[in-house]
């Protein structure tokens, strides 16, 4: 996609351009879905929340220029809708089978360059999953959704300093969990290093 976000928004607002809107949808929908899923933990409600947000955005398209940061706006809208949903009495009582699919959306390292073993991939996924909830969410927003610390701060309503502090905790925990996979020097006389 070679069109800038500004161009897309302009076309949506002033040309009622549905193709531009589709491009915006395609860029953002999956990330927002994952974000919604983190709150509601069910596939269908998460999908509905995100689609509702997009439909509302389309209805308000002629005021798009009044929205400062569109990405932050979308995440905040999804977050609010998800929190509202959680406050309502639960409709889904049986276990949502779809929630098992969440493993598909884990972070994937660049396998070709690292020649990761299946074991290491599992370890990475579980290391991320085992992060404390807030820490995990911030880590995913930064690494997975490529948002800046300022955007994440805006979305979660916390200070940019907290974002960096939580990220540092994530980095430390991940490093500790993944350390045992570090290649050991091949020579037998290589001493163990104590850090």
């Amino acid at each position: 996609m070679h069109v800038t976000m500004e161009e897309l928004l302009y076309r949506i607002q002033f040309h009622d351009d549905q193709l531009a809107f589709k491009a915006l949808y395609q860029q953002q929908v999956f990330r927002l879905y994952q974000f919604a899923f983190a709150f509601v933990k069910q596939r269908q409600p998460a999908e509905e929340i995100v689609n509702d947000v997009f439909v509302k955005l389309w209805q308000k398209r002629h005021q798009l220029d009044k929205i400062g940061q569109i990405r932050v706006y979308l995440y905040v809208a999804v977050k609010n809708a998800a929190l509202n949903q959680l406050r309502r009495p639960a409709i889904f009582t049986e276990t949502d089978l779809d929630s098992l699919h969440v493993q598909h959306f884990r972070l994937e390292p660049d396998t070709e360059q690292l020649l990761l073993t299946h074991e290491l991939q599992q370890a990475i996924a579980s290391a991320v999953e085992q992060l404390p909830p807030k820490c995990k969410m911030i880590f995913k927003l930064v690494k997975q959704d490529e948002l800046s610390y300022k955007e994440v701060a805006g979305i979660l309503g916390i200070s940019p300093k907290t974002v960096d502090a939580q990220l540092a905790i994530a980095m430390k925990k991940l490093a500790a969990r993944l350390q045992c996979f570090a290649p050991v020097p091949a020579l037998p006389d290589a001493g163990e290093k104590n850090d």
Binding site: Y25, Q26, F30, P109, Q113, L114, D145, L174, A175, P183
Partner: peptide, 23 residues
């Protein structure tokens, strides 16, 4: 080593387009 793994973590693009199309 761990830094390079964390650096390379990114979004898994597989299946995203299909997800977006259906939505």
């Amino acid at each position: 080593f761990t830094a390079s793994i964390i650096d390379r973590m990114g979004n898994n693009a597989a299946g995203q387009m299909e997800f977006a199309e259906q939505g």
